[in-house]
Amino acid sequence: MIRVVLADDEAVVRVGVRAVLAATDDVEVVAEAGTGRAAVDLVLAHRPDVAVLDIRMPELDGLDAAAEIRRLGTGTAVLVLTTFADDAYISRALGEGTSGFVLKTGDPHEIIAGVRAAASGAAYLSPLVARRVVDHLSGHGPRLRAGERVDGLTDREREVLGLVGAGLSNAEIADRLHVVEGTVKVYVGNVLRHLGLRNRVQAAIVAYEAGLIPPTP
Results as ranks from 00 to 15, higher is better:
R156N: 06
R158D: 12
V52R: 05
T216K: 10
V78N: 00
G141F: 12
G106Y: 13
Y187I: 04
A85Q: 13
A66F: 14
G189P: 09
E68P: 13
Y89V: 00
H136E: 07
A122Q: 04
T82K: 08
L21N: 00
V52H: 04
L94R: 01
S169C: 02
E68Q: 14
L72V: 12
D86R: 02
A45I: 01
T154A: 08
V50Q: 04
G162Y: 00
D54R: 09
L212R: 11
R14E: 00
G141M: 11
T183M: 13
E10M: 15
L144C: 03
S91H: 08
A171P: 07
V206G: 12
L79H: 06
A204L: 10
R176E: 15
L94Y: 07
A77D: 01
N170A: 09
Y124N: 02
N170T: 02
G141C: 10
V17R: 03
P58K: 01
V27P: 02
P215L: 07
L212Y: 08
A174C: 08
A171G: 10
R149D: 03
D9K: 01
A119N: 04
V4M: 06
D41W: 06
T183S: 14
Y89M: 00
D49F: 15
L72G: 02
R18T: 06
P214S: 10
V102K: 03
N190M: 05
V129F: 09
A39L: 14
L53Q: 08
P48E: 06
D8C: 10
T35G: 07
E157M: 01
